[in-house]
């Protein structure tokens, strides 16, 4: 797992109010189907901005951006957040 994805997961656990722990969610799983509400997605968005010191531009402030761990990671990549792979156990 990449360190970026791991950080996204820990933010989802803290702010996403998902119906299942993020470790049991695949990168491509639809987070909204896993219980992420619109209001919770805003808190996730704000926490991600803090954690990675970025600001999502208007065009990325859509449901599609916060649809999955993967879509969030891709959005962060487009903002210059590099993903480095770390050993996963």
């Amino acid at each position: 797992m990449s360190d970026v994805a791991a950080t996204i997961r820990s933010i989802l656990d803290a702010h996403g109010r998902l119906s299942t722990p993020s470790q049991r969610i695949k990168d491509s799983d639809d987070l909204f189907q896993r219980g992420l509400s619109s209001h919770a997605s805003v808190n996730v968005m704000l926490a991600i901005e803090d954690a990675f010191d970025v600001e999502f531009p208007d065009e990325l402030l859509t449901r599609a951006t916060f649809q999955s761990v993967e879509s969030i990671r891709i959005a962060l990549e487009s903002l210059g957040v590099a993903s480095t792979n770390v050993e996963s156990d």
């Binding site: 619109s38 209001h39 997605s41 805003v42 968005m45 704000l46 859509t62 449901r63 916060f66």
Partner: peptide, 13 residues
Amino acid sequence: GRGAQLLSRGQLD
């Protein structure tokens, strides 16, 4: 506030 657009677009979509 911040995130308003995300909520508004979600509502419209």
